[in-house]
Design a protein around this nucleic acid. Structure first.
Lengths: 128, 128
DNA sequence: TTCTATTCATAAAT
DNA sequence: ATTTATGAATAGAA
């Protein structure tokens, strides 16, 4: 419970963040925020949603319910024939929640196995 | 000008909104909110972003910087290059790929530790 | 990544 | 479509 000083959220212009460091932090925060909002959209409305974004290093990231490819296909399909009768399919995946559950599970297994072996295994997974 | 009453934002469960009317309102607000966040992402980071979502009537809506089609094409292109040049799991950027890796890992652990107790299912909602 | 102080988003009621 | 009262997201600092 340390009381580290913080000036609280400040208002900023919606333009490119000049500072490379601040921009990196923004990439992380904003990407997570977008993912959460997208997940909330599908949870609350029961409809599909998906998004794609690129980060500093030019890497693609995506989120989709039920999957980004399914969303893209459905998009093109409906866009092409707008009068198409839509079928109800709805199968939410809640990727982030399930993902986090699995991550914790793996973590638990690894910690348990640490006292017997040193796996040296490292995962570069940034989502939470 | 008028001071119509409101109880302020209330906390809600992130599940399907039962009320058709409330859901309709949510579609509108959430869609706008997602659009704003996406736009802010590209403005602040200078990188591309795009999203697709479907509304009650099954109609597709999209947003893209510079365009949803460009974003989709770039996504597929980079995803292809990435998998061709990197076979390791060191640079996974797609949540689904990472998810699958974790799932397999968990499965492996479980098969290896057959006599472990069965963890109970914990399914609660929340954010983050 | 974590914490705090603020700004922003938005559930309810109109 | 608007206002209000709050819940949430997040800029800046560590």
């Amino acid at each position: 419970m340390d009381k580290r000083g913080g000036k609280g959220r400040q208002k900023i212009e919606m333009n490119l963040i000049e500072s490379k460091e601040a921009r990196t932090v923004a990439f992380s925060k904003r990407k997570n925020g977008l993912g959460k909002k997208a997940k909330e959209y599908s949870n609350l409305t029961g409809e599909d949603v998906g998004f794609i974004l690129f980060t500093q290093d030019g890497k693609p990231h995506s989120y989709g319910s039920p999957s980004i490819e399914k969303v893209i296909d459905k998009f093109h399909e409906l866009k092409q024939n707008d009068s198409l009768q839509n079928h109800t399919d709805m199968r939410k995946t809640n990727v982030f929640e399930a993902f986090e559950d699995l991550r914790k599970e793996v973590q638990a297994f690894k910690e348990k196995a640490l006292d017997s072996e040193m796996p040296t295994d490292k995962h570069m997974l940034e989502n939470r």
